[in-house]
């Protein structure tokens, strides 16, 4: 830290800042204080914990992939075209951010449940039932994670104009070539940041998943669901804590790793 001549630190800011740090730190310490090494060892070797861990990673990664496939084009249209109703559309995209996840899950169920028109078609034609299936869990996670990806990618696109794409056009590159060779590579930092946020949100997703996809080990019981049912259900608090810690370690290490590599260049 360097301070300008007139820029002595405002001591008054230290206290609320310290409160903020403690507010985050103390619960984490509480979590650690409850877990014993033996518990962690037990949980790590228990098939149940590993199943939910694997499922969590699979679902969250799939949710990110799904979000990227549909979210990048959406962000592109929002940032680069003068579509009518664009503001309305952006508001709509942000909706899952403010919607309580449980309500989001109920909404998904009322749209894609087996007895709904869409769900009925999926079930009768393809034999796919989204509730109770891993696909349903992925969908719930993508539903809550998608806005993070779209917002970040759109901001990245807005940061620079279409100048490089125009240069490419004068060099004879057709629209799709410009998109893949210019737009996408230049978007890499924002896309990584957006995907990381989306992934973190998906990994921690609880409400929409349990409401829409239900909870069954190996199919839809992701780590947060497993932690919750261990906590509320069997009263196995130490197991719940261990599961939470696993989730914590994975998310923090991935996010810190990405931050050093990519996120710093976005800001």
């Amino acid at each position: 830290m360097r301070w300008g001549a007139a820029g002595r630190p405002l001591l008054g800011l230290y206290i609320p800042a310290a409160v903020a740090v403690l507010f985050i730190l103390v619960p984490l310490v509480g979590l650690l204080a409850h877990a014993s090494l033996a518990d962690i060892g037990d949980a790590l070797t228990s098939t149940a914990a590993l199943t939910s861990l694997r499922l969590s990673l699979e679902c969250s990664l799939l949710a990110v992939i799904v979000s990227a496939i549909v979210g990048v084009p959406l962000a592109y249209l929002l940032a680069r075209t003068a579509m009518r109703g664009r503001r309305l559309l952006r508001g709509l995209v942000l909706l899952p951010l403010v919607l309580p996840p449980v309500v989001g899950g109920i909404a998904l169920q009322s749209a894609f449940g087996r007895s709904t028109p869409i769900g009925g078609v999926l079930h009768s034609l393809f034999g796919v039932t989204l509730p109770f299936s891993t696909a349903g869990a992925v969908m719930a996670e993508a539903f809550v994670g998608l806005p993070f990806l779209v917002i970040t990618v759109e901001a990245g696109l807005r940061q620079r104009d279409a100048g490089f794409e125009e240069v490419a056009a004068t060099l004879g590159a057709r629209p799709w070539r410009r998109f893949w060779l210019i737009t996408m590579p230049l978007l890499a930092p924002s896309l990584t940041a957006g995907a990381a946020l989306c992934w973190a949100r998906a990994l921690g997703e609880f409400g929409a998943t349990i409401t829409f996809a239900g909870s069954f080990p190996g199919t839809t019981e992701t780590l947060p669901l497993a932690a919750y049912s261990a906590f509320e259900g069997s009263g196995a608090v130490s197991r719940a804590i261990t599961l939470s810690l696993i989730l914590l370690v994975i998310s923090v290490s991935v996010l810190v790793g990405l931050r050093d590599r990519w996120l710093g260049t976005v800001a």
Partner: peptide, 18 residues
Amino acid sequence: KSLELDVKTVLEKVESGD
């Protein structure tokens, strides 16, 4: 297909047709 955390939610899954 799913193990719910209370009996009313279990019933809801039949009500909703899932």
